[in-house]
């Protein structure tokens, strides 16, 4: 019988950072929802979005996520895990999501540093960045 010379290492967990990101995403979603009711500039941005447009904002690959939809020219938080969203913005890893959610990186920097990637229409992503900058 041979003596095993290797180990199988399972991925660890970052429960603290995960909880902070989840909380920050919750606050961000609520803030965006509220701001879209009152802020004229945000409402102007939303006019160009298709009605019921859905965006998922998520830390890759299995991190916390937030889902937003456009309803009556306002943003609304939807149930997480919305099926088949119109756009998904992935933050490349949990550490980068942590930097972003603790305001140590901006949304623009996330794209500059390849910290985020996108499935969907880039012009709406830019509009979303302008909204995020106002919130």
């Amino acid at each position: 019988m041979s003596v095993s010379t290797y180990q199988v290492i399972s991925p660890g967990r970052k429960r603290g950072k995960r909880a902070i990101i989840k909380t920050a995403l919750f606050i961000l979603g609520r803030s965006m929802q509220s701001a879209s009711r009152f802020d004229k500039k945000i409402q102007q941005e939303l006019e160009s979005w298709p009605e019921n447009f859905t965006i998922v904002y998520k830390a890759f690959p299995k991190g916390p996520m937030m889902t937003l939809c456009k309803n009556n020219n306002k943003l609304k938080r939807c149930k997480p895990g919305e099926e088949d969203p119109d756009m998904i913005i992935y933050l490349k890893n949990l550490e980068y999501a942590f930097l972003l959610m603790t305001s140590r990186r901006s949304s623009v920097e996330a794209f500059l540093e390849h910290g985020a990637f996108l499935k969907g229409d880039l012009s709406i992503a830019l509009s979303l960045i302008r909204i995020l900058n106002r919130v």
């Binding site: 500059l112 880039l122 012009s123 709406i124 830019l126 509009s127 960045i129």
Partner: peptide, 9 residues
């Protein structure tokens, strides 16, 4: 132009 990807850079 303000919705074009390059503007962010």
């Amino acid at each position: 132009a303000i919705n074009d990807g390059s503007i962010a850079f």
